[in-house]
Amino acid sequence: MTRKPPEPVQVIKQRRDSALRALVNGVPYIQFMGIEFDRRGDELTAIMPFSENLIGNPILPALHGGATAGFLEVTAIIELAWQTLWEDMEQGRLDPTSLDPAHLPRLPKTIDFTVDYLRSGLPRDAYARARVNRSGRRYASVHVEAWQDNRSRLFAQATGHFLMPSRDAPRNED
């Protein structure tokens, strides 16, 4: 009996990165905000590079509370969608090369989102990571933390509930 040789690392990386790219690039608002995602294995870190357009208090200056919340919400939604996508991809149920803007997995919908502003957002790049605390068939609860210069000094955090897309419904029929 011969074992199948493992896939070359570059092939795996390429497949995972292109799936993530398709997911993120498909959402206009994420592009508008300039938010990017960094991947280490299945772990995602969201990055929001500083832009003048994100300012809400020009005197300080500080990031707009709405921009910070949008960043946190995007991080939570992409993390949830990514976990589903990752599982489907690793188990061979989904071919990431079939992912184009017209065939994206359906995204979870935000039900409620509570943002806690801990200190003012500086005119610098911001980072965020989401933790899925519970993910059921229908609902999910996600916590997100955002920081700038120091990982241990959060400038905002949020918790929200999300409605998961139904798993048996067809993906985005066209």
Binding site: G26, V27, P28, Y29, M33, H64, G65, G66, A67, A69, G70, F71, E73, V74, I77, P101, L104, R106, L107, K109, T110, F113, N172
Partner: peptide, 15 residues
């Protein structure tokens, strides 16, 4: 925020 339906992202409404 949802390219399939053209619905605005919650973050924009929140802002």
């Amino acid at each position: 925020g949802d390219p399939a339906s053209g619905v605005l992202h919650g973050g924009a409404v929140y802002a």
